[in-house]
Write a protein that binds this DNA or RNA. Structure first.
Length: 259
DNA sequence: ATTACTACCTGACAGC
DNA sequence: TGCTGTCAGGTAGTAA
């Protein structure tokens, strides 16, 4: 579900509510929600103070007075401030002044304690243009799978890759190492643009995503290709096509994004 | 290093 | 009303 703009929205909404608070207790209702042993995770978190909240790629990181609480929402995870529990509630973090409810229907998400940050490529939001171009120039693969690979660049997912490639007029199967400097710069610019617009709109809500207060985003109305197969391209009027690239549904305009 | 395939889990939706 | 197959915003493991 959530990609960089959605995670950023959750983090911004949550920061003012949780920073400075202490974790009183952590309860797991599904053992899968803790990456390791639920008891050990709970024990490591209990009594810790939240010093800061930040985002790295699609990961939510709570800096604690000792170590880091990491939350990954994966496909259907929701982290709700004083949220209502339901049959899909997988964990509850009780803080001194409220509770964080972790609901996740598909159970791919998790909540864990770690000593330091996860190993990820540079964050897509704010990566310097030169660094971005250098990374993609040095890789052999196709552009879409590379942008989705979190150890190459972190934060982009299926929606924002398709939207960025459309705006940059680049075919998803193009080999990144063969893209001209100009096209790489344009891609970098379009990624920053689409992420900024999506964050301003509170993210995209297709079916599940809501922020920490339970509110959906509205950037889905600004999607130009994602989920628009068969509909006319906003630029040329020809039909948006859907194919599969790297085992992911891929939406693009066959005319505007020629190989 | 890159690509394909399978798996994790649940629900929605289309077609018969 | 089923039942079956496909799809979903993510990622890890394995094999070629």
């Amino acid at each position: 579900m959530p990609e960089l703009p959605e995670v950023e929205t959750v983090v911004r909404g949550l920061a003012a509510r949780v920073v400075g608070q202490q974790i009183v207790n952590v309860r797991f209702f599904s053992p899968r929600a803790a990456l390791g042993q639920p008891d050990e995770t709970a024990a490591a978190l209990r009594g810790r103070r939240i010093c800061r909240l930040r985002r790295l790629g699609k990961h939510i990181l709570f800096d604690l007075d000792s170590g880091v609480l990491e939350v990954h929402l994966r496909m259907t995870g929701k982290l709700l401030w004083n949220g209502v529990t339901n049959p899909y509630t997988r964990a509850i973090l009780e803080l001194t002044g409220g509770a964080l409810v972790f609901n996740d229907t598909r159970q791919f998400g998790y909540l864990t304690w770690r000593r330091g940050d996860p190993n990820l490529g540079p964050d897509a939001l704010g990566i310097p243009e030169e660094r971005f171009a250098e990374i993609l120039r040095s890789r052999r693969g196709r552009i879409k799978p590379l942008l989705l690979n979190q150890s190459v660049i972190s934060g982009l997912g299926n929606i924002y890759v398709d939207e960025s490639l459309f705006r940059a007029r680049i075919h998803p199967l193009a080999f990144s190492s063969k893209l001209s400097e100009e096209r790489l710069r344009r891609l970098h610019r379009m990624i920053q643009e689409v992420l900024a617009e999506a964050i301003a709109a509170g993210g995209s809500s297709i079916s599940d995503y809501v922020d920490a207060e339970g509110r959906p985003g509205w950037f889905q109305v600004g999607h130009r290709v994602y989920g628009r197969d068969g509909e006319p391209c906003v630029t040329c009027g020809r039909g948006i096509r859907r194919t599969v690239v790297g085992q992911r549904g891929t939406h693009f305009c066959g005319y505007c994004q020629r190989r």
